[in-house]
Write a protein that binds this DNA or RNA. Structure first.
Lengths: 195, 195, 195, 195
DNA sequence: AATGAATGAGACTTCATTCAT
DNA sequence: CATGAATGAAGTCTCATTCAT
């Protein structure tokens, strides 16, 4: 694997683990056992690394969102999709943490766009469910539910730092489903949701 | 107002606004228009300021929790209490953000204790509601609901940095209530929830 | 006892114990439980305290040296005198340590004068002994012996930080005598030297 | 010469000349005309520089002591050895001064070990001389003589900061020999001791 | 591509000293 | 006499970044 990619991978791991603010460019170089000069050969600095990771995440999320057709999707497909989406967010979780701590000026724009995308996607999901008469929530309450789903989706990233990522992703999905459940006209038939 | 208190107030405001990691001790001194030496006369460093704010928050939350009797409380009293609790958390919101970013070793113990308190309080609240037959959720799902309430309570702090604190607090409370609502046997009669 | 004197006493004790370089003016004020302002009311700063202590020491040594008549003194009187002299040096021992560490520009002049006095006094003592035909050392060797006595007198200050000052003073005197002994025509009959 | 070595050399010179307490890390950087950052690139701080110098000194002294066989050594060899030993101590003289001023907790352990080594070596030297029937001193007095030699050896470091190091070393050795001389059964035949 | 020494700005902290009360 | 808050210069140290090789 090329050095550039190794820098990205290692940075991501370290940022996720310790918070991007607590990792210096020298930390990354040391972990990779490369010289700081080499790091700067590949990236202008820590910020550019973060921006790149942010773009990767945007791309991954964007691809997922673009592929999904909320009108046509089956329930089991939706479950798979949700897991994928959460997995991506978990993979780049430090971005979401940064959003809350790093002020907008420096705070990278990409992550903010991402958030808006995810937020509006959440709202659309609920609308789609309602159009299929699967969900029964009134206008304002639906917005609130969307907000809640979105917030919970994010905050779960920060706290469920459990065992394996796969398990964490499943738990996260369950958690989100449990928020929607009470408002459904019938229980969703989601693969993996065996409650 | 004494300089010590002004330092605490200004620090809190700056920490809440920009994240504690992005504020240096000199920033605080500059904002207060005092010399760095003076800042260090009152506090050994940024960390001691944070610890003090953490203690204040713990005290405020502890006092609120100690005063409330979940068995005997009326619905309107609960509403008032919930608003107070959220107001305190909002006031010291940077502490909750720090928790997610700053590693446990340095990360102040106080805020971690606080979180556990709030988490277990959330669980107890639901238990109390169920004993009064107001709530109907099975064991595991109740835990999940408690988790959700807790997580949402925290994450709301980070994102709803809207207009006035009072409005934000009301919105936060509504948000939490909306999570519980679907599981109630009858609608709570909470003062202020007139929507 | 007046504050001024208490400052001198406490400073001396702290300087002797920790080295003057490691004691700040705030340390002294704290130890005395007075305010830094009060300290500066009595002395312009740490340096003035040191200068004053240095003067005291010079005075005490000067008085001792002035009183002694090397030609007429008896052996037992000499012993008493030597003990007194060493006691004074021990009492102000930090001055002698400072001499070695603090460069001449800042290094206080007083202590340097003191050293010269003591050095030449040592030489004179040996001359006196020789005139009485008690000592038998040739010119150059006598100078060297004087140097040795002087150096040992000082360095003993730094290392014999044993139990009580009185014991230390006796040990110091013994140590010096043992240097002279081999060159004496007959053993000195010094009170206290019962070995 | 590498920067690291230049830092060590310059630091040693400055420490010896002004006392380690009076030299700041910036002083060293300024003298070398390097940036403070560069200094810290090579050493974590002043303390690490001192520790390194201390190790060097320990090593040099240790090597000398290990090579010498007190039983078998000839007198002229001993003289050479003694000069070497004193030269090393003079070269690192600031270490011995620090010992007296800097409290044990921070005061570096290495220099303390060194002192003990030198002290016990002094005692062993005298024992060896006695076994060869060259020296005639009773038990307790021998200990005192050893102490005196040791103390004088150290304090000479502090005061004989004369012209060239070579001259100073010779004077120091002479000074030590003159302490032992009176107790010898016959004059030592030391190369260079032409008295 | 890669190295690693070097830079310099700025953060953190200490302390001698002043000054209004 | 005494207080203690306040100052500011200076010391210690970190880190993002550059650059010659």
């Amino acid at each position: 694997m090329g050095t550039r990619q190794r820098i990205l991978d290692t940075s991501l791991a370290m940022f996720n683990h310790h918070g991007s603010a607590n990792i210096t460019s020298l930390d990354i170089a040391a972990e990779l056992e490369i010289s700081p000069g080499n790091l700067y050969y590949h990236f202008k600095g820590k910020e550019e690394i973060i921006n790149q990771l942010s773009k990767e995440c945007e791309l991954a999320v964007g691809t997922l969102l673009a592929r999904v057709d909320l009108e046509a999707i089956s329930e089991s497909e939706y479950w798979v999709f949700l897991l994928s989406l959460l997995r991506v967010c978990l993979h780049y979780r430090f971005l979401f943490l940064d959003l809350q701590t790093v002020a907008p000026p420096q705070g990278n724009r990409g992550a903010q766009r991402l958030m808006k995308q995810l937020h509006s996607f959440t709202a659309h999901s609920l609308e789609a469910l309602e159009e299929k008469a699967l969900l029964q929530v009134k206008g304002e309450q639906r917005e609130q539910l969307a907000d809640n789903l979105f917030l919970l989706g994010l905050s779960w990233l920060c706290f469920d730092s459990g065992d394996s990522d796969d398990k964490a992703v499943e738990r996260g999905a369950q958690r989100l489903i449990s928020l929607v459940n009470p408002h459904l006209t019938r229980q969703l038939n989601l693969a993996g949701t065996d409650q």
